[in-house]
Simulated assay, not measured.
Amino acid sequence: MTEGNFVDYVKVFVTSGNGGKGSSHLHREKYVEKGGPDGGDGGRGGHVIVRGKSNLWTLYHLKFKRHFRAEHGEHGSKSRSTGADGKDEYIDVPLGTVVKDTETGEVLFEITQEGEERIIVEGGMGGRGNWHFRTSTNQTPRYSQPGIPGQETQITLEMKVLADVGLVGFPNAGKSTLLSVITSAKPKIADYEFTTLKPNLGIVEYRDFQSFVMADIPGIIEGAAEGKGLGHYFLRHIERNSTLLFLIPADAKDIVEQYRILLDELKRYNPELLDKNRFIAISKSDLLDEELKAELKQELDKTLNVPYMFISSAANMGITELKDKLWQMLNN
């Protein structure tokens, strides 16, 4: 999937159908000059419904369709015939999509299961025909109810990537390179910051035909929780990952400080993110000789309170051990 086809945020207008009018018909047939009321009810207007589809991965199919309108209910007719209900309008979304009220920002609901259906706006009820209003003192009512109008609103759809492991790190830390080595994904890789502008997903093949999903999240910068850099556009994707893999390059000025900044950004965005499993992979470790690695290890053992490992995507160093560790954490 190309970067331009990855759409994880759209706003759409939704309008439900109007209810059909009730009929005020009076029964007429040969030899029955003045029959009683027999007007039928109007049909219900169509709902607008959000439906979960596991075969969708982005909201790209909604990029060019921003208005969804359900059908109106049919009017009632003679012989107490009820009008047909309006056809419901479905909006198919990938699993992990959050639906919000655009005006208030309130979260309405979340779609997490295949085939799950939730009504956004209900269709208007059909009006009752004059047959319902007959009484002993008013045997031929010549009036009926109009249908109730439908509703309209604007909603925001936000997709959060569903993955087992989320790659977290500063721009140009080597996340895309690791994803390309450890999975069959082909993310864009270049020697400049913010090469990755959209999350990339890859399937990590493990032993005995087992696998897990890894997501390469665009790089975090200090102040991301306040919207700097790519801000909330990528931080929300981390909420779905059960394990966070922090990737910090071996040539960083201060590995512990980088980890602290990354952790602080996650905490400020959503403190619940700190409850997830964490692991640190020190990338580009092929730049270190054994002496430097030993010194660095001695220092990290004193200051870090999370497990870590030295790896190199370019030299394929420690990749198998990293897979083993991640699999163990996911299945603990």
Results as ranks from 00 to 15, higher is better:
G20E: 05
E29Y: 08
L26P: 01
E272T: 12
R118M: 13
G43I: 05
Q145P: 14
K323D: 06
R278V: 01
T140R: 15
D38C: 05
R236L: 11
P199L: 04
G36F: 13
V121K: 07
K30Y: 14
T15H: 14
G42H: 02
E222M: 09
F209V: 08
A315H: 05
T104K: 02
V107W: 10
D41A: 09
N332R: 11
A173P: 06
T140N: 15
G22W: 05
E239S: 05
E114L: 04
L262S: 04
K34Y: 13
E265Q: 03
D216M: 02
K267P: 11
K78Q: 13
Y60N: 14
F209T: 09
S79T: 07
D251C: 02
H232G: 09
I120E: 08
S313P: 13
G150C: 13
E103V: 10
T15C: 13
G129N: 03
L26Y: 00
T303C: 07
P146Y: 07
E122Q: 14
G76I: 08
I91E: 09
K284G: 03
E193N: 06
I280Q: 06
L247H: 04
G83L: 01
D8W: 07
I182Q: 07
G127H: 00
P307D: 10
A315K: 08
L244K: 00
G96M: 11
F279A: 02
L201W: 02
T97A: 07
A250C: 04
K175N: 09
L274E: 06
L179Y: 01
K297H: 15
A315R: 11
G105W: 13
I182N: 07
E74H: 11
K228S: 15
Y60S: 15
S313T: 12
F234D: 08
G76C: 06
Q151F: 09
E114Y: 05
I155D: 11
V48D: 02
R260I: 04
R236A: 05
F310G: 03
L300W: 02
S23T: 01
F194D: 11
G20Q: 10
T15D: 10
S285E: 04
T153G: 01
R128W: 06
V50N: 13
D324C: 06
G229V: 00
L178N: 07
R134P: 00
Y9C: 12
T303H: 12
G150T: 09
